[in-house]
Write a protein that binds this DNA or RNA. Structure first.
Length: 234
DNA sequence: GCGACAG
DNA sequence: ATCTTGTCGC
């Protein structure tokens, strides 16, 4: 069965109201599993990112699949589209998830885990973009955000690999990880079928000397290149 | 009411 | 996210 085979995709159609979106999240959050599958030893790791063009108001959603061992590109898929759903902190899923799901569904290679540019459970209702995608696709996911949405954390040494626990309302929802010396840390949190320890170990294995883990960094580059290529021509 | 606020 | 030039630091 193809990835996300049973999903009913309706991007661009019925846009949920703020209240409806929150209700959907409260229903999905109950399905989030904070433990990796038995014998979780991924071989293929995916990364996602979305770039946006303000002039044509188009989204460029990208998913790349890398071989974990070598961090080399295996496959990439791009989906271009438009949405009317605005950016609202806490409701990012309703803006980006439809396009990312379409892109992931096009993959010939099924990734065993996906690194998502956004939060996992480090979210007001514990259902950030990474968790949302994981539940819908039933694939382990990890949220890797470049800034904080919720939670507090302590001092972080300026040394690659060091981290501080991210806590929100008394719960440990992720870590703030220094992926490289001299740069701002990233916010790593479990999405679905994932826990903090496993997420940390995997992100560390995906680092290649840059601030962002290679799958997300590569997806970001592809998204921007695609957007610029389209914007520049037609 | 005020400040915070993934992309 | 995107819009933007130069500039500071390893």
């Amino acid at each position: 069965m193809p990835i996300g085979g049973k999903l009913i995709l309706r991007p661009g159609l019925k846009m949920p109201s703020y209240k409806e979106a929150v209700q959907i999240q409260q229903r999905l959050r109950e399905k989030v599993v904070l433990k990796p599958p038995l014998g979780f030893f991924p071989h293929l790791v995916a990364g996602t990112d979305v770039s946006y063009s303000r002039e044509d108001k188009m989204f460029y959603a990208v998913v790349v699949v890398l071989e974990l061992k070598s961090l080399s590109l295996i496959e990439k898929q791009v989906v271009i589209g438009r949405t009317e759903f605005p950016y609202i902190p806490g409701l990012l899923s309703f803006r980006e998830a439809p396009f990312l799901i379409k892109a992931i569904a096009k993959l010939k290679h099924r990734p065993e885990v996906i690194l998502v540019d956004g939060q996992g459970i480090a979210h007001p209702r514990r259902i950030g973009l990474a968790s949302h995608l994981g539940v819908l696709l039933q694939i382990p996911t990890i949220g890797c955000a470049k800034s904080r949405l919720v939670g507090t954390y302590g001092h972080l040494p300026d040394r690659a690999g060091f981290y501080s626990i991210l806590k929100d309302k008394g719960e440990e929802v992720g870590i703030v990880l220094r992926t490289r010396r001299g740069v701002k840390p990233i916010f790593v949190s479990p999405g679905h079928l994932m826990d903090i320890k496993t997420a940390y170990q995997l992100v560390i294995r995906c680092l290649k000397g840059y601030r962002l883990p290679e799958p997300i960094r590569m997806a970001h580059i592809v998204a921007n290149q695609t957007r610029l290529a389209v914007t520049r021509q037609g």
